[in-house]
């Protein structure tokens, strides 16, 4: 088990990777990648029972993770490479022709660690539910994790999956929502009146946990609580309250950095605020 300080160091490097990947690619989605970086770092480096050396797409004998908000690839690829699924140097190929690091996750390029394609929103939670039922079916006593965006929760299929998972008592599933309150056209409230997600998930029959998604201790507590709630007949949703673009002052708290890329000068400023802890790619 890594210390909180170690996890923070990894998360700082993940944010540096995110900035440098989208800058090199001149495209990509840094905002949500940075809001989800802390709890996703905790998940891969401090929570999941996973091992790149024995990884298979079937995921048998390991905890698995399904990314539903597929545009969060900068964060996802950085964490997978830092966890040892593929060389960190490959992050430089993000979104470039011929890369295994497609703009949105693909299973057609042989990138280890990726279980399923994502990008068209609202679908990954269903896949995670199916994978969790599959694990039960093959008597694999492991947990399936999934990450959705709060904006993504405007998709109707999310709530189809919510109702189905509760009805079928899919209790080896821990879903997470990155509640950064922002989406492309503005805040989630102004765009769609998203409302109280905790109440909604509870009404759909899920256990919910709410936590500060940038406080590493609180994040680990939330995952520990999710583990305790596992196997008790209900799926679990962790609502991580976060800030879009978190970690760089001029990118934080605004929808404008959902899918925009910093220029050279902005890059320098951003990287100046994010300590290099593991060595840049």
């Amino acid at each position: 088990m890594r210390s909180t300080e170690d996890l923070k160091k990894i998360a700082s490097q993940v944010r540096r990777d995110i900035i440098r990947m989208v800058a090199l690619a001149k495209s990509g989605h840094p905002g949500g990648s940075m809001s989800s970086a802390d709890f996703m770092t905790a998940l891969y480096f401090g929570v999941m029972d996973q091992d790149p050396a024995t990884w298979t797409r079937e995921g048998t004998g390991q905890d698995t993770f399904i990314l539903s908000a597929g545009h969060l690839t900068p964060m996802y690829y950085s964490i997978l490479s830092r966890a040892g699924y593929f060389p960190v140097s490959e992050l430089a190929s993000f979104r470039k022709f011929g890369t295994r690091l497609q703009g949105h996750p693909s299973v057609r390029k042989g990138l280890p660690g990726v279980f399923q394609a994502a990008g068209s929103l609202g679908q990954g939670l269903s896949v995670a539910v199916g994978m969790a039922l599959g694990k039960k079916s093959v008597k694999d006593n492991h947990t399936v994790y999934a990450l959705c965006g709060d904006g993504e929760s405007e998709e109707g299929q999310i709530w189809e999956a919510a109702m189905f998972a509760a009805h079928h008592k899919v209790d080896n599933l821990v879903a997470m929502t990155d509640v950064n309150g922002q989406q492309i056209d503005g805040t989630t409230e102004s765009v769609a009146g998203l409302g109280d997600l905790a109440e909604k998930w509870q009404a759909f029959g899920w256990e919910t946990i709410s936590a500060d998604g940038h406080d590493m201790d609180k994040i680990l507590e939330a995952f520990a609580k999710a583990k305790e709630l596992g196997g008790k007949g209900k799926p679990v949703m962790i609502l991580f309250t976060t800030e879009m673009g978190h970690g760089v002052d001029f990118m934080a708290g605004t929808h404008k950095w959902h899918g925009s890329v910093p220029n050279d000068d902005q890059c320098k400023v951003a990287l100046g605020q994010l300590p290099e802890t593991l060595g840049d790619f």
């Binding site: 079937e58 399923q116 269903s126 896949v127 199916g130 039922l133 999956a161």
Partner: peptide
Amino acid sequence: GTAAGMALT
């Protein structure tokens, strides 16, 4: 989507 997730396993 659920069927796809099941197929993965």
